[in-house]
Design a binder for these strands. Structure first.
Lengths: 159, 159
DNA sequence: TATTTAACCAAGTAAAACAGTGGGAAATGG
DNA sequence: CCATTTCCCACTGTTTTACTTGGTTAAATA
């Protein structure tokens, strides 16, 4: 079972797109500075997200990434699945050959757990996250900070 | 969030104790051969399980480990917690300082997920696992294999 | 009492994954 | 043409995992 910073970063970045994507594509440089995630690392994650058709890209100035589906139709489980291999808790990946070609003692337990986690993360869409009070508050704080620093995309700074 | 072979091994080994512990303490050599887990690795895991008072040990010939509580009172979450640091899915460990001293965008999401997983694993006792049909079947198969090999503890072999 | 059995303990190690860096393409808008 | 931004690839330090090696100590038994 894998659920590390990688998956967290991916979800955080996708949520950032969901929040700031109204005015057109969002550049990874913006996401990087708002969410404190290394730009090159983001690029690697978004390569996977793009391969899984969760985002589409626009190259060149003013370009960036946009979500390829409405917020209501993008679920956290998909995002985590896209960057990790899976959220499977079993050794065998569900193929029941965990102990020398045969099923191991706790196989079903880990299957049940995997289902549990997957169902939970599949029940949460980007939309439901954006609508949360705390997310709105935290996002507002991040936008404040961004203004203070003033080191973001030129779109907002230059005349 | 950590949930790897380490935790799986620990649960499998504890379940082995639960199944074979009626006739006295179970040696790690037996567990190792039945469950295909390295003996020395098991020793390391059981050191942690003992520190967390999930098992007690008996040294010397005929010794081994026994569960320090009834099956109904030992839950999977405790076992996983004992060998890993925790099953926490957040970066900050719940202390809300994930982004430069402040809370990050997805903090609550990972908290919810951690709760979800913990509640699930806390709802399953060793007893409920032992009572499962598949566990009984798989355990029976393992005992068969053990007989075929005949390379287990002397307790069962010598007159 | 010597021997065997087993828990206990410490250190090291190969492989993998994680998190991130750096350099340089190619596309695109002004 | 030039700045921006995606895209792509290779490399690196650190941590964790899973496991090995080589012991010591406690207790039962012959």
């Amino acid at each position: 079972m894998r659920l590390t910073t990688k998956g967290r970063y991916a979800v955080t970045a996708m949520l950032d797109l969901a929040i700031h994507g109204d005015a057109g594509p969002v550049s990874l440089a913006d996401v990087s500075s708002r969410q404190d995630i290394s730009l090159s690392y983001l690029e690697q994650l978004f390569a996977k997200l793009r391969r899984n058709t969760l985002v589409s890209s626009v190259r060149g100035p003013g370009g960036g990434y946009r979500l390829s589906r409405p917020l209501q139709q993008i679920f956290i489980a998909e995002i985590v699945d896209a960057v990790n291999e899976s959220v499977d808790a079993t050794v065998c990946g569900g193929s029941t050959d965990c102990q020398q070609g045969e099923i191991c003692l706790t196989h079903h337990l880990w299957c049940d757990l995997s289902d549990q986690i997957h169902d939970f993360l599949s029940s949460i869409s980007l939309y439901s996250l954006v609508e949360r009070g705390e997310v709105k508050r935290i996002s507002a704080r991040q936008d404040e900070r961004e203004h203070d620093h003033g080191d973001l995309s030129l779109r907002e700074v230059t005349h």
